[in-house]
Simulated assay, not measured.
Amino acid sequence: MAHKYVNFISDEHLLNCIGNLHKAYLKAKNNVSKKSFYTNKVDSIKLTFDAKFNDINEDDLIQSEILRQIDKSINNSIGTFHEQILGGIEGYEVGNLSGFDIRAVDNTLFADIKNKHNTMNSSSAEALFQKLARYADDHKKAKCYWVQILAKGSFNEHWKGEINGKEYGYRRVYHMNIV
């Protein structure tokens, strides 16, 4: 296994992940145009206020919205990139729509990964906590993580607190931020 770039995955795997991300960038740029813009759901009231309050003409406004849609697709692809990178570490695998993003093949770790652009409302946070707690219940040796990539500070702590008026805490459920 060659390690020219990083020491935890092969160079071949890293370059394959980067290649997949590049394809996602190209696809996102090719899938959104002025013509397809009008077929997507667009908040026309917001766009009207944006145009008037920010003194933006219609063509520039549409172009900025197209770029926003491309950026949203790219952010999703960056999340997939993170999963693919981590899934290439020996002993770990990508969840592939199985309810987790990454797991240790021996079921000692489950992780849900969010990048800094993915904000969660309280209902999403509650559902994620409950999901991770179920994995911990089902796999007695597992540690389960909500991992935020590129958050404002690094930490790794038990995830506990009040969500939607209910108190949550579980000894093998963690919240981790990685800068």
Rank of each mutant, 00 (worst) to 15 (best):
Y135E: 03
D11N: 06
N177A: 13
F49Y: 03
G88T: 06
A111M: 01
I78M: 12
K114E: 10
A133L: 03
S44C: 08
N107R: 15
G165N: 02
A104T: 13
H22Y: 10
N57I: 11
N40H: 09
A51H: 02
K23C: 04
A142C: 12
D101Q: 09
H3G: 01
I9P: 01
C144W: 01
D55R: 14
E93D: 05
D43A: 07
S123T: 14
V147F: 09
F110N: 00
V179L: 15
Q69L: 13
L15K: 05
G99V: 08
I66P: 00
A125C: 11
K166V: 11
R172Y: 04
A127C: 13
R171V: 15
K160I: 11
K143C: 09
I113S: 02
K23Q: 04
H175V: 12
E157V: 14
N57D: 13
L67F: 04
N177M: 14
A111T: 07
I66F: 00
E93L: 09
K131F: 12
D112Y: 04
L86F: 09
A111F: 01
H82I: 07
N7V: 06
L67R: 02
L15P: 01
I89S: 10
A133V: 07
F100Y: 13
Y25F: 07
S44T: 07
T108D: 09
G91L: 05
I18V: 02
K140C: 14
D137E: 08
A133I: 03
L15Q: 04
N20L: 04
A125G: 06
D59G: 02
F53Q: 02
G87K: 05
T108Q: 08
A133Q: 06
A125R: 09
S64Y: 00
E93Q: 07
R103W: 10
G169V: 14
D50T: 08
S44P: 02
I163C: 05
S10V: 05
R134G: 08
S124K: 15
I45D: 03
H139M: 10
A2Y: 08
L67W: 03
D138N: 10
Y92M: 05
E90Y: 15
D137F: 07
L150I: 11
A133P: 05
L21S: 00
Q63V: 04
I45W: 09
H117Y: 15
H3P: 01
N76F: 06
K143L: 13
F81H: 06
D11V: 08
I85D: 01
S154Q: 11
A151V: 15
E93F: 07
N54F: 07
V147K: 04
H139V: 06
F100R: 15
L150S: 11
I62K: 00
K141T: 09
L14G: 02
V147D: 03
I56V: 09
G19M: 02
I102M: 11
H82C: 07
F110T: 05
A133K: 05
G87L: 05
Q69G: 06
K46C: 12
